[in-house]
Simulated scan of single mutants.
Amino acid sequence: MPAIPTDIGTMDMDLRKTLAPYFSGFNKTTEQADAEGSMKFMHPQGVIVQKNTTSTFGKEALTDLFKRWYKFTGPYYFNRYHEKYSGGGDWIVVEARMELRKVKDDEVILRGEVVHIWKREQDKWLIFYEQYHVDE
């Protein structure tokens, strides 16, 4: 039986390291406004929720959402900070502040909070659930 970590910071760092290449890959798709590329990081039965507003479920609807979103925003940097990681087994939860900035002129598109729940499917991690809230 594996030892239970006594240092929460160590667990947080392990989860960060696990997701780092996935976040890096996903961020490249936002920087290119690549809807099909973004979908490679989403679970086929994934959900994106704008808190207290809307939700979108499933591969076809999410692909359409990404296409419409990127048409509206263009390429952008997806910056996350004040991240908190938790989870274990086949699930990792990331809670963070976020800021989206246009690649072209560094203009802020939006700021807010985001929660990602990643699910391990076979040998890779996919975003199963995203919930975001936009600052007023």
Rank of each mutant, 00 (worst) to 15 (best):
L15C: 02
A96I: 07
K28N: 10
W125T: 01
F78E: 13
A35D: 04
L100A: 10
T6I: 06
K84Q: 11
Q32A: 03
M39K: 02
F23C: 08
H43D: 14
F26Q: 02
W125P: 02
Y85E: 00
M13E: 14
V134E: 07
S38M: 05
E83G: 06
R111Y: 11
E99P: 05
G89P: 03
P75M: 03
S38Y: 00
T53N: 13
G58Q: 05
G88P: 08
E36L: 09
Q50L: 13
S86E: 10
G9T: 13
Y77G: 10
Y77N: 10
P2T: 07
V108C: 04
E99I: 07
A61E: 13
G112Q: 05
T18M: 04
E130Y: 09
T29M: 03
I127G: 05
V93L: 13
Y129V: 01
F66T: 08
D34V: 00
P44F: 00
L65R: 14
S55K: 15
R68M: 14
Q131M: 11
S24C: 15
Y76Q: 05
L62Y: 07
I48M: 07
Y22F: 11
P5C: 06
F78I: 09
I48G: 02
M13K: 15
K104H: 02
Y70H: 14
F128R: 07
L126F: 07
P2M: 03
H43S: 07
H116C: 12
E31G: 02
F26E: 06
S55T: 08
A35G: 01
F26D: 07
N52R: 08
R68A: 15
D14Y: 12
A35N: 01
F72K: 13
F128Q: 11
I48H: 05
A33P: 04
L65Y: 08
Q122D: 15
D135E: 08
H116G: 10
F41Q: 05
R68Q: 12
F57S: 11
F57A: 09
R101Y: 06
Y70A: 09
R68F: 11
T30G: 05
V94K: 04
A20H: 14
Q50W: 12
K71C: 10
F128I: 09
R101N: 08
W69T: 14
D106E: 10
D14Q: 15
V103R: 00
D90V: 07
E99G: 06
L62K: 02
E95I: 07
V114S: 09
A96W: 15
G25I: 07
I92L: 01
E95M: 07
K40H: 05
K59L: 12
K28W: 08
W91D: 13
W125L: 01
A61K: 12
R16E: 12
H133Y: 13
Q122E: 11
T56C: 14
F23E: 12
L110K: 12
Y77R: 13
M42D: 03
A61F: 11
A33F: 00
Q50C: 09
W91V: 15
I127S: 11
D123Y: 11
Q32F: 09
V49P: 14
Y132M: 06
E83V: 06
H116S: 12
D123T: 06
V47A: 08
W118K: 05
H43M: 04
A20T: 14
H133D: 13
K59C: 07
M39T: 02
H82M: 15
R111A: 04
H43Q: 06
E99Y: 03
K59Q: 08
Q131P: 05
K40F: 11
K67N: 06
G87Q: 02
D123C: 03
N79F: 08
Y129D: 00
D106H: 08
I127M: 08
